[in-house]
Computed example of a mutant assay.
Amino acid sequence: MIEKDRVAYTTQRLHDGKKAEIQAVLAVNNKDIMKLRIGVVPEHFSSPVFIYDQQGKFQARGVDVEVVICEAGTGDMVKRLQQGDLDLAFCVTEGLTTAVANDPRPIRMVGTYVTSPLCWSVSTGFHSAHQGLDTLRNGTIGISRFGSGSHIMALYMADQHQWPKTRSDETTGADIEDTQERQGLQFRVLHNLPGLAQAAEKGEVDAFLWEVFTTKHLYKSQQLRPIGQVVPPWSSFTIGARVHQLLDNPEGQLAVRRFLEVLNEAVQEFLAGMTQETKDNNGSEALPPSLRFLMERFHYSQADALAWFKTVRYPSDVRDISRQELGQCIRILRNTGAIHNPDQTEDHLVDSQVAHWI
């Protein structure tokens, strides 16, 4: 990071005049911003990060990042954060909320990545007898891993349908794997989308939940068939960061703040790139750059890419977290049995020195 950029950034962050923050920033003023390992899912939501990383724009703006693709999703990213193998991760909100509420020591929330709710499609094998969600009661649901969005949203689905629990020993100290039978469901860990799809096609699981646009190609190939959707009342993705040697020290906090500021730029450029007029080398109209990226990277048709774009909302500032929404998420997930810690509130989950309450 060149000196004039560091000075400009320092000046910007000292607007509130807090003595502690001044000292923290000055303490690292002459140090380079630390390298951050960022966990993301290999899905269209991650496009702003992929584009900025591909074009070298994070580094050009003074942020040193390593983008780590986590095919197993939120459960895997949470584990990597807890173990210190990742510094930040973009997790589905229900998975990150559950993990931090059950044990807030290794991870805190530092922002919101996608504000629109995630539409979870419930899929079964193409030749399955299941025609709707009602027949899934007491069935076997495929999940990527315990604590993942596919697991927690299955619990949410069962709770929404008021399926009776098959046992009554709901101790508050239970581990999340102990929800195995608490909502009238059995779970089978299958790691990723290919594993889930194969098991559903063979009838080894009754169904599984996954993001609708990511699953759509499996419906077109008639490997799977959709039988319903589950849409929770909270944001799709929130941003988690490890505490040890990152959020618990001034240099780490500065690096996270700087990354989130540059991430805001990446998001806004991606949104603008979905609609801007573009010409090719011959002067003819060409696809907008972000739309072209979606189609090439994820093999989406133009219609599917545009259909997804109509449904998604990114925040104007990724550092914002809604106190009301997070509180509602905690209450609902505690009721499903996913969160077993009765004492945690939204203040325990969020690093307010980095994130902004709204």
Rank of each mutant, 00 (worst) to 15 (best):
Y52F: 15
Q54T: 10
K57E: 01
K57Q: 05
F58I: 00
G62L: 01
V63Y: 06
V63A: 03
D64R: 09
V65G: 05
E66L: 07
E66Q: 12
V67Y: 06
V68S: 05
I69E: 08
I69A: 11
A72Y: 11
T74P: 03
G75D: 00
G75W: 05
V78D: 01
R80F: 07
Q82R: 15
D85N: 13
L88P: 05
L88N: 01
F90G: 00
V92G: 12
V92K: 11
E94W: 11
E94G: 14
G95K: 05
G95Y: 07
L96W: 11
T97R: 06
A101G: 06
A101D: 00
A101H: 08
D103R: 14
D103V: 12
P104C: 02
R105I: 09
R108P: 04
M109R: 06
M109K: 07
V110F: 04
G111S: 03
G111F: 09
V114N: 02
P117A: 11
W120P: 02
S121R: 13
V122L: 07
V122G: 06
T124E: 00
F126H: 12
S128P: 12
Q131D: 09
G132I: 08
L133V: 13
D134T: 15
T135S: 15
L136D: 00
G142D: 00
I143P: 10
I143N: 06
G147N: 05
G149C: 09
G149A: 12
H151E: 01
H151W: 08
H151N: 06
H151G: 06
I152P: 05
M153S: 14
A154M: 10
Y156D: 01
M157R: 07
A158P: 12
A158R: 05
A158L: 06
A158Y: 11
D159L: 10
D159A: 13
Q160E: 08
Q160M: 14
Q162I: 04
W163R: 04
W163H: 10
P164H: 10
P164Q: 01
K165L: 06
D169N: 14
E170D: 14
E170M: 12
T172F: 13
G173V: 05
A174G: 08
A174E: 04
D175H: 15
I176D: 00
I176S: 03
Q180E: 09
E181I: 14
E181G: 13
R182P: 02
R182I: 04
G184P: 08
L185W: 10
L185R: 06
